[in-house]
């Protein structure tokens, strides 16, 4: 069963194309990696699928619900870690998670338990009553990850989930994704630049460039198709990006 299905999904901002004719299927329980260069349309896709913005044309269903006519239902079953994370810096981690949980109508006793569990999991249990303004970037990212999971969503969208995290925390996030993916039937839609992360945790990968979906397949399929040693080579070939090695003389 498809957790996400888009049909000719298009978003145009004035004269700029955000996403063009996106046809994509992500299956229930799958961990899907969405790769693409900066400005390729990853975040626009995530925003469209989370009903934050409206498509210019095309259709999409998330969890079986239409993103236009059943947006409230879509929002209830999805969790999102945004690319540019917003946070109320004058709230404590505990208060912030309570705030987000309330927005999703999580009952208070359950919410309290989940907040404690998530803070403990991310090793922030003893810092739950500190203001977020004093947190490092990685710690804030952990709080935001917790906020994306606080209402126990069926489908989780993670836009650069390991951004700003140290290797230990990054490992923790990868393990969390793997664990949730295998033990619960959650679907993960992960946008990332970190190709080893995608290679390690994603079952299938989509590569988007200039608003258009260029390739979809498992990492192995893609590597075989392009005769590449790793995902990085696939990515560079698909997007046509080459590293120029012209050194500046004075360096």
């Amino acid at each position: 069963m498809e957790a996400i299905k888009t049909v000719s999904l298009t978003k145009i901002y004035g004269s700029n194309v955000g996403v063009e004719n996106l046809n994509l299927e992500v299956f229930s329980g799958e961990t899907f990696g969405f790769l693409g260069p900066n400005g390729s349309g990853k975040t626009t896709t995530v925003r469209l699928l989370n009903c934050i913005i409206r498509p210019t044309s095309g259709r999409a269903k998330v969890g079986g619900y239409d993103i236009l006519s059943e947006s409230e239902k879509v929002k209830r079953i999805t969790g999102l870690l945004p690319e540019t994370p917003g946070i109320y810096e004058r709230l404590t981690a505990h208060e912030f998670l309570e705030f987000i949980g309330s927005l999703y109508d999580v009952p208070q006793p359950i919410l309290k338990r989940r907040i404690n569990d998530l803070l403990d999991f991310f090793e922030l249990g003893d810092r739950g009553d500190e203001l977020l303004e004093g947190f490092s970037k990685g710690m804030k990212q952990k709080v935001l990850l917790a906020s994306a999971l606080i209402h126990d969503p069926e489908i989780v969208f993670l836009d650069e989930p390991t951004s700003g995290l140290d290797p230990v925390s990054s490992r923790m996030v990868k393990d969390l994704i793997k664990m949730l993916s295998s033990e619960t039937n959650k679907t993960f839609f992960i946008c990332t630049h970190i190709l080893p992360l995608a290679e390690e945790v994603c079952e299938r990968i989509g590569i988007i460039d200039r608003g258009q979906l260029k390739e979809v397949g498992s990492p192995e399929e893609l590597k075989e198709k392009y005769g590449a040693k790793n995902l990085e080579e696939v990515f560079l070939q698909v997007t046509g990006k080459n590293v120029t090695k012209d050194m500046i003389e004075w360096v």
Binding site: N50, I52, L80, G86, Y88, I100, L103, D105
Partner: peptide, 18 residues
């Protein structure tokens, strides 16, 4: 400075109404 959090709130079921 709350532009980013607006996206988080827009994503929630009641959206920005709440």
């Amino acid at each position: 400075d709350t532009k980013d959090i607006l996206w988080t709130i827009k994503k929630t079921p009641r959206g920005v109404k709440l």
